[in-house]
Simulated scan of single mutants.
Amino acid sequence: MNMAIAFAAVARPSSMVLLTRQRSIPRWVFTPLASSSFSSSTSSSTPSRKLVLYSKPGCCLCDGLKEKLQAAFLLSGPDSLHDVDLQIMDITSNPEWEMAYQYEIPVLAKVLSDGTEEILPRLSPRLGVELVQKKIAAALKQ
Rank of each mutant, 00 (worst) to 15 (best):
L61R: 06
C62Q: 09
D63M: 03
D63S: 14
G64H: 14
G64F: 14
G64R: 15
L65C: 12
L65A: 12
L65W: 08
K68F: 00
Q70W: 09
Q70S: 13
Q70E: 15
A71C: 10
A72C: 07
A72R: 08
F73M: 15
L74F: 03
L75K: 11
G77E: 15
G77A: 03
P78T: 13
S80V: 11
L81F: 13
L81A: 09
H82S: 11
H82P: 01
D83V: 00
V84K: 10
D85P: 02
D85W: 04
Q87I: 02
I88P: 00
M89Y: 02
M89H: 02
M89G: 01
D90A: 09
D90I: 15
I91T: 12
T92N: 08
T92P: 01
T92Y: 14
S93M: 07
N94G: 03
E96R: 02
E96F: 03
W97R: 03
M99Y: 02
A100F: 01
A100W: 04
A100Y: 03
A100R: 15
Y101K: 09
Q102G: 02
Y103S: 10
Y103A: 10
Y103F: 11
Y103N: 08
Y103T: 13
E104W: 06
E104A: 11
I105V: 14
I105L: 03
I105Q: 02
I105G: 06
P106S: 07
V107S: 05
V107F: 13
V107T: 10
L108V: 05
A109I: 03
A109F: 03
V111Y: 00
L112M: 12
L112Y: 04
S113H: 04
S113G: 02
S113D: 06
D114M: 09
D114E: 09
D114Y: 07
D114L: 05
G115L: 04
E117T: 06
E117Y: 00
E117V: 03
E118T: 12
I119L: 10
L120D: 14
P121K: 05
P121F: 10
P121S: 11
R122I: 12
R122P: 00
P125F: 11
P125L: 06
